[in-house]
Amino acid sequence: MDIEAARETILTTLKKKSKSKSKFYLKDFYKMIPDEKPRAVKNVVNKMVQDELLEYWSSGSTTLIGLKGMGKQAHAEDED
């Protein structure tokens, strides 16, 4: 897998959808890189969180992932 291309695809897709949706299930990322195995996509996504391009949101039971700083919560809770 071309990791750079995969990261770019993820960022472009998330930015495109950012008006209607700010948080995504991990499974949504599998669809963005359909030729790769889920495990490989998961590793790319988690690395992007470490690189502070994406961020996790957790309810405690489920985790969602979005572009860092997107959505209402960071600002509403003074976490930005």
Binding site: W57, S58, E79
Partner: peptide, 19 residues
């Protein structure tokens, strides 16, 4: 409120945001 974005660097679990 439900959940949050907080955590420790590099981890996606172990911390649950509560407000």
């Amino acid at each position: 409120k439900h959940g949050g974005i907080v955590g420790v660097f590099g981890y996606g679990g172990g911390v649950i945001g509560r407000y």
